[in-house]
């Protein structure tokens, strides 16, 4: 289990101090898939970077309980592939050299299989479409066999068809491997389609928690998905969220 306790992060911008995240307390149960939704600049990416260990919190702490995530995989908004490595090299990038070469090759092959890109193992990043590059980035995260997979708007730049296919692929991978997934998005529909729990973030604070107990794969056109969407949108567009008191559910966003 991964827990965030009163997590806060602020930055200095000139003479001003900007608070990106304020007093966020969350619990991510093992093997769960949680989506975090909010408008641009609400602190989603900051929260994910703190969870990934890419930044240190200004206040509060992150706790990993026993049996909690040890290996972390991150998929960023852009594929961030190394242009000097081919697809197989990019997928194997995070694997340490102390693993035998056969094991590295085997794990990379399996990860590429999982994202349906086995035929492109020798392609260079410049030869890939945006969707393919993002799948390579997902394979690079999966090859680490992460028990915590963090995704920061990974499908934001993709067209609607590729995006839908990738969402289904992600759910299939989650059902097969059961890592704990935290998925950040600004798209409310995507948040409902992918999350068992949807956390709403506004101005650096968690302003709501929407449990979504629908079976996967979810159909975006169903009334249940639309109901969840409507409720989330109502909370996110409510007036002056910064001054509003936090809903009880948001203080400890996911009941465990």
């Amino acid at each position: 289990m991964l827990e965030a306790h009163h997590l806060g992060k602020s930055y200095r911008l000139g003479d001003n101090e900007v608070t990106a995240l304020a007093d966020v307390s969350l619990t991510f149960p093992r093997g769960s898939i949680t989506t975090i939704v909010g408008r641009s600049g609400c602190g989603k990416t900051t929260l994910l970077r703190l969870l990934a260990g890419l930044e240190q919190p200004s206040s509060g702490e992150l706790r990993r309980s026993e049996g909690g995530p040890q290996r972390i995989g991150v998929v960023f908004q852009e594929a961030r592939l190394m242009p000097w490595l081919d697809v197989a090299g990019n997928v194997a990038f995070g694997l340490r050299r102390r693993l035998p070469p056969e094991a590295i090759a085997e794990r990379s092959r399996a990860a590429l299989d999982m994202v349906g890109l086995s035929a492109f193992a020798e392609a260079m990043p410049g030869q890939l479409s945006g969707g393919m590059a993002q799948r390579v980035a997902i394979a690079r995260a999966l090859v680490m066999e992460p028990d915590l997979l963090l995704l920061d708007e990974p499908f934001a730049a993709l067209d609607a068809f590729t995006r839908r296919a990738m969402q289904n692929e992600l759910i299939a991978i989650w059902q097969r491997k059961r890592p704990t997934i935290v998925f950040v998005t600004h798209d409310v529909e995507e948040a409902v389609l992918l999350g068992e729990h949807v956390l709403e973030l506004e101005r650096g604070r968690v302003v709501g928690h929407e449990p979504v107990a629908l079976p996967f794969p979810r159909d975006p056109t169903t009334a249940e998905v639309n109901d969840h969407r409507r409720r989330i949108l109502a909370k996110l567009t409510a007036p002056s969220p910064a001054s509003a008191p936090l809903p009880e559910a948001a203080a400890n966003a996911i009941a465990t």
Partner: peptide, 24 residues
Amino acid sequence: KLIDVGTVCGFSRSEIMLRIVLPS
């Protein structure tokens, strides 16, 4: 952003230098 990739992979400073910075 490429250095972030190395950091989340758990690379040391020298690994980041050799595997990301120099090729970049």
